[in-house]
Design a protein around this nucleic acid. Structure first.
Lengths: 131, 131
DNA sequence: ATGGAGCTTCTAGCAACTGGAAGGTCAACA
DNA sequence: TGTTGACCTTCCAGTTGCTAGAAGCTCCAT
């Protein structure tokens, strides 16, 4: 199977597949006689795994570790769970930060009349007038 | 005033100030006879503005536009507000995405017993067993 | 005068790709 | 058989927003 079909079936763009190979996230693909990369169905599965993990926000490095756990049929589910829990904490802190920003912005925009006049609490706040 | 004092007073690291100058976010600093950058109090104000806007999650490019609006004493507050509202929408969509990821992960971890046994719904889901 | 802190420039690296150029290959159609 | 066009290859550059480090001035206090 050529890289294009794998891209289609896994949802990972061909460029990205080559990139993953280059950084060692996935093993180097076998080559056909013409030099084209040659993939099997199990390579597609791997890339689907990667794709899903990335969509859940795991870093590429984390995905590498998850792949290792996945391949290790003797892993302890506790190891995987720890991984996921860490990631949840990370995501929650990002959400909190974004939400605090959001609240600030909402409050500022509520106080900005938003017409043709120049005075604007948003800029005043950024300038530190009321800090 | 040297770059170090400005860094301290504005909260923007010296390296970052140079970087902002290089990319044109802030104007090129005047130079003293020894070649050192020479700043005024108003430069500190500008950098504080930049710092606050960045902390509110505005991109550097957006900060540039906000600076322009800030300097334009005839701007319409509507222009600033539009900017902020766009940014709020952006942040909200990021929050939503993170929250959806969070929910998925929480649900997966809840189903993972997390002990020494190898079977793990998290990996199974990533592998697409139940897709 | 000497030591250390602070300043200068330059280059390179981080994450995680994405786009484009230049060129080889393959399959189908006229 | 020729040629078009879709694929594939590699390599280089760009994105965003810095940050680290190296090599080398300058300044001030002792």
């Amino acid at each position: 199977m050529n890289i294009g079909s794998v891209a289609e079936q896994s949802g990972v763009p061909a460029k990205t597949i080559r990139y993953y190979e280059e950084i060692g996230l996935i093993p180097k693909a076998l080559r056909a006689e013409n030099g084209y990369r040659n993939y099997s169905d199990s390579d597609v599965e791997t890339l689907r795994f990667v794709q899903r993990a990335r969509k859940l926000g795991f870093s590429v490095k984390d995905v590498g570790n998850l792949l290792t756990l996945w391949r290790d049929k003797n892993r302890a589910s506790a190891d995987v769970k720890k991984f996921a829990l860490d990631h949840i904490r990370d995501i929650e802190s990002r959400i909190e930060e974004l939400d605090s920003i959001r609240q600030t912005l909402v409050s500022l925009t509520n106080h900005c009349h938003g017409d043709e006049r120049p005075d604007c609490p948003i800029l005043e706040d950024l300038a530190g007038a009321f800090k």
